[in-house]
Nucleic acid binder design. Structure first.
Lengths: 126, 126
DNA sequence: TTTTATGAATTACATATGTAATCTTTAGGT
DNA sequence: ACCTAAAGATTACATATGTAATTCATAAAA
């Protein structure tokens, strides 16, 4: 329950790090610049803030550092989703899915995956 | 696709308004103070910001105003959920549900609701 | 060894956000 | 008609965030 607050921009940096780590600042910058156009300095700032927030750690490697995430992507995305669902749907997940269904935002594949999740859940719960 | 950015605090004010409108500032303040403890001035500021962002409108009523939301709750929560799901799950909804399942955050009722949504979807799609 | 270039640390600065206090206007009370 | 209290408008101020530029330290080049 560390409840680290991570901004949108910081999250993107974390994504680049989760994708493969440990990684140097430059590697992270390169990964990010494949999609977006962020100034090197900007990324460094975000990395620093993530370190301050204890979302990222590093170990010295000669002149540069090797950064690693201190929280798992899975853990973080779950926590964030849960908060959003608590704030907007009283913690219930189906209203969210219902919104997607209502607006035709579900594809066949989504339905199949959900069905599979449900079977698995039912199997696990006796 | 107006893409109005609404902060967490602003969202709570909107909630109080969605719950019943049109409403005066005082009514909104009273509703909010049933749960939390926000200063009257704070709520007024948030209301003002929502008006500036065109998320809330009002019509003069003697000295005080009658406020009304300019966007539907349903629309807003869908947009927000969609953005989160795009950012963290590449737009796919099942990884989110999977996270809930994995961490034992689904109750029987959730499963039932999901199953019902799925049947409905399948019915609607030929 | 002196210079330089590069990585990290610090500082910058505008806008957003949380949280109010103060100012202005005017409906209501006396 | 005048004063006051309450509603909205404006201003305030600290922290967060997006987006960098500047400074400092030092390994690498000359």
């Amino acid at each position: 329950m560390e409840m680290i607050e991570i901004s949108k921009a910081e999250f993107e940096v974390l994504e680049a790090l989760w994708c493969q780590y440990p990684a140097t600042a430059n590697e992270i910058i390169d990964r990010l610049n494949r999609d977006k156009e962020w100034h090197e300095k900007t990324v460094k700032t975000l990395l620093n803030r993530l370190v301050k927030k204890q979302a990222v750690g590093f170990e010295k490697q000669q002149r540069s550092y090797l950064y690693s995430p201190l929280l798992e992507r899975d853990t973080y995305t779950f926590t964030e989703s849960k908060h959003l669902i608590e704030r907007m749907f009283s913690g219930r997940i189906s209203p969210l899915v219902a919104g997607f269904a209502k607006r035709n935002n579900l594809k066949k594949q989504d339905i199949e995956e959900l069905k599979s999740l449900i079977s698995k859940w039912e199997n696990d719960h006796d």
